[in-house]
């Protein structure tokens, strides 16, 4: 059976309902919540601030440090609190993706900390996390040369789909499911992160990347709007 209709009735290139909200953690320098349907991510940014221990400092520029964590109750089987191999890897790939957009040359010996939390998961949590973190970085006023947006593209049997759910991730018919998480810079349109699990031809992978790039453009508009809304509100409050 080919995958001719999505489990939740979405169009193939349609994401789940996206919500983006800025300023969810008042203590932080910048923060945001981002969700793809039932997948929710919260990100908070602290910094630039002095980096300790001192030997980790870079006298040339500030560094970006990302930590991704799922809440224990975000999935059916409770996750033990504390870091895992998975969360350690996702933290790093998110860091790589986001670091290429930030300009920290002016802040030697400092660190910008990005904390990502997942309170509810239905696949694509790393993408939601990166999207929340991008907004939070901009909200914190961290200098950026471009803006990172992330999405997961799936290949269900032979069909490309945007923004994969857990149910789709577990699809086993035909060629099964291939899950490709990727992140793009908005302006340069360069890839800053890509991961793949499954089986896919080079030609199909090119198609998947193209779909990812186009989808990210639309997600970016929602991220931008959330930031603009909060800026307008703050300006109004100042008056």
């Amino acid at each position: 059976m080919a995958y001719t209709k999505r489990f939740d009735g979405r169009k193939f290139d349609e994401t789940r309902k996206i919500t983006a909200k800025v300023g969810v953690v008042p203590n932080a320098d910048g923060s945001a919540m981002f969700s793809f349907g039932d997948t929710v991510a919260i990100a908070a940014v602290y910094g630039p601030k002095q980096l300790h221990p001192q030997h980790m400092q870079n006298p040339e520029k500030g560094i970006l440090r990302v930590n991704y964590q799922m809440m224990s109750f975000s999935v059916s089987e409770r996750i033990r609190p504390g870091p895992s191999k998975r969360s350690t890897e996702i933290s790093k790939i998110s860091e790589w993706a986001l670091a290429s957009s930030t300009l920290l040359d002016e802040f030697p010996n400092t660190v910008v900390d990005v904390h990502i939390m997942i309170p509810q998961a239905d696949a694509s949590t790393r993408c939601a996390g990166i999207n929340a973190a991008s907004i939070a970085l901009a909200h914190a006023g961290v200098p950026m040369k471009d803006f990172v947006t992330s999405v997961s593209i799936g290949k269900m049997d032979k069909q490309m789909v945007a923004d994969v759910t857990k149910e789709e991730e577990d699809y086993e018919e035909g060629e099964g499911a291939t899950d490709i998480a990727m992140s793009f810079m908005n302006r340069s349109e360069n890839l800053v992160h890509i991961q793949l699990d499954g089986k896919i031809s080079a030609k199909e992978l090119k198609e998947a990347v193209e779909l990812g790039r186009k989808t990210c453009k639309r997600i970016y508009e929602i991220q931008k709007k959330a930031l603009k809304d909060v800026k307008d509100m703050e300006e109004k409050n100042d008056k």
Partner: peptide, 15 residues
Amino acid sequence: VTAELTPLSHPKYEY
């Protein structure tokens, strides 16, 4: 009961 005081919630907390 387990509690996590997350670095997300205040700069004084660490991993």
